[in-house]
């Protein structure tokens, strides 16, 4: 043990100084979800299979759907990605999702703008 210990004095510490250095997530990583509204057919299988009820699909027009994802409810199991028959959902590598404002944890993917908008906190 002593030899091993004295050797490590000369070694660089293995600590990774997060947040200054960040690690790359592996390809299969299950991070924040991404929703592609144009692919969605509104079958709501993802809603049915989600263990925590974190995802909601709303109909906002003729063949147009939006997804509301509660990031604080999501357990990042990516079952919805598997359940989706049209591959409208996708898990990204994004992990840094901590927020002080709880309202920002509710992400709405809107078909109209085709862009992610973050709804302001509402009480």
């Amino acid at each position: 043990m002593l030899r091993q210990v004295l050797k490590s004095i000369l070694k660089k510490p293995v600590t990774i100084m997060y947040p200054y250095e960040k690690l790359e997530m592996p390809d299969k990583f299950r991070g924040k979800l991404k929703f592609s509204p144009e692919k969605c057919i509104g079958c709501k299988m993802c809603m049915k299979d989600c263990p925590t009820g974190a995802i909601t699909i709303n109909k906002i027009g003729e063949k147009k759907f939006e997804a509301v994802i509660d990031l604080d409810k999501c357990i990042y199991c990516a079952q919805c990605v598997d359940s989706c028959p049209k591959k409208a959902l996708e898990a990204t590598k994004e992990v840094e999702l901590a927020q002080l404002d709880k309202g920002k944890l509710r992400v709405i993917f809107d078909a109209e703008s085709q862009k992610t908008t973050e709804e302001e906190s509402k009480k």
């Binding site: 210990v5 592996p26 990583f29 990042y76 990516a78």
Partner: peptide, 28 residues
Amino acid sequence: TLLMYTWRDREAIMDVLALLTGNRVNYG
């Protein structure tokens, strides 16, 4: 010291698990 060393080495396994399954714990 044993704690620090074993947990340092354990990181390798955690990374492998993340690589294979998509997460370090709760592999799914």
